[in-house]
């Protein structure tokens, strides 16, 4: 699980071009949107693509996204439980 969290942090920094942010700057429970990392709706689309492309998870209900993408912790838990690759 810890390795997955680290992997997700790296993927988010690289994919979303968060130039001034390092892995250590993202706490597992920091909110990804709003006050935390400050991601926006375009980033949400990028995260959906990461789930699909890298972990074989297709989000069919967009409402699920809000809870899945709450933090690195919630993302990692959801991926661990649902990944197909």
């Amino acid at each position: 699980m810890e390795a997955l969290k680290e992997e997700l942090k790296n993927k988010i920094i690289t994919t979303l071009n968060l130039e001034d942010i390092a892995v250590e700057d993202i706490a597992d429970n920091d909110p990804l949107f709003g006050d935390g990392l400050g991601l926006d709706s375009i980033d949400a689309l990028e995260l959906i693509v990461i789930l699909d492309k890298d972990y074989g998870i297709k989000l069919v209900d967009p409402k699920e996204g809000k809870s899945i993408f709450q933090s690195i912790e919630t993302m990692a838990s959801y991926i661990s439980a649902n990944r197909t690759k």
Partner: peptide, 13 residues
């Protein structure tokens, strides 16, 4: 690269 799948919006926009 992705065989016309997994297209992300940023570079398109």
């Amino acid at each position: 690269d992705n065989n016309e799948e997994f297209l992300t919006p940023t570079s398109f926009i």
